[in-house]
């Protein structure tokens, strides 16, 4: 049995947001969509100011509120711990987004093909890309995954459906690490099986003090934070990414 867990080491995170960009390219997500997001936070008054960073992927909760409320079973929990969205079944009610206390769900408000960071229909460019939109689009994302063979990988598929972090299911299923974990310049992100107590990730968690975000809600997240503390009520964001979607 495999149960995937992600570990975020707050003692290491530089707040550089490379994970966010790696996620976007790997999963072909559209403008304003941050399946992985890194908060840059500040609290206290000068000169006793504290600044911290907090990466926030989908928490892939074991007791996931989003799974419970999904009216059509498009959002579901897999045996390996992943919480996935069947974008071919989702009806776009956004109830999962309301239920999730972490704010990790991203809806395709517009036509994804118009939200890929550029006009890619230049004929000279299409001669190079074969018309791929975005040019870096990854065909793995358009394949079914898991024993249940459902359409769950990547983003930017249809307008009007919900999407979110998949722990890079298409990579994990072939034995690779999620894109954010791979790119992290300081190894602030770790990923692995915690069903086996002897994996490096299991041992790492055991050897370090840790917490989970909004643990008190009973959501049982599969993302574990090592080092640092849960964000207090006093923190506020600096250097905002007010990236939205516009027509």
């Amino acid at each position: 049995m495999t149960k995937y867990t992600m570990v975020v080491d707050l003692d290491r995170c530089q707040g550089c947001r490379a994970c966010m960009e790696a996620c976007k390219i790997e999963n072909n997500t559209t403008e304003g969509v941050f399946w992985m997001y890194v908060f840059r936070l500040e609290e206290g008054e000068y000169p006793n100011t504290q600044q911290t960073y907090l990466p926030r992927p989908c928490q892939h909760c074991d007791n996931a509120p989003c799974v419970k409320v999904c009216p059509v079973g498009a959002r579901y929990k897999r045996e390996d711990g992943l919480v996935l969205t069947d974008f071919d079944r989702c009806i776009g009610c956004r109830y999962c987004e309301l239920a999730c206390p972490y704010g990790v769900n991203y809806f395709n408000w517009g036509k994804p093909e118009k939200q890929h960071y550029g006009e890619w229909d230049d004929p000279d460019l299409q001669a190079v890309t074969g018309g791929a939109n975005p040019p870096w689009s990854n065909p793995d994302l358009a394949r079914p995954h898991g024993d249940e063979q459902r359409m769950v990988a990547g983003g930017g598929h249809h307008k009007g459906v919900m999407e979110k972090c998949t722990f890079c299911v298409h990579l994990v299923e072939r034995g690779e690490l999620p894109a954010c974990v791979v790119t992290c310049p300081v190894q602030a992100l770790r990923f692995g099986n915690t069903d086996d107590p002897e994996t490096p990730v299991s041992r790492f968690i055991r050897e370090h003090g840790h917490f989970r975000l909004l643990d008190e809600l009973g959501t049982e997240p599969r993302v574990v934070y090592v080092g640092g503390q849960p964000p207090s009520d006093e923190v506020h964001e600096i250097e905002l990414v007010h990236a939205g979607v516009e027509r």
Binding site: A18, M20, G118, E119, W136, V182, C184
Partner: peptide, 29 residues
């Protein structure tokens, strides 16, 4: 996709946000 080259001592398989995002440049119309 661009990923860091694990064999390179300088970045050991990792990339910064700029390194990840630069894929747009090679297709920039």
């Amino acid at each position: 996709k661009f990923d860091g080259d694990p064999a390179n001592p300088r970045n050991v398989g990792t990339l910064c946000p700029k390194g990840q995002a630069q894929i747009v440049s090679i297709y920039d119309p």
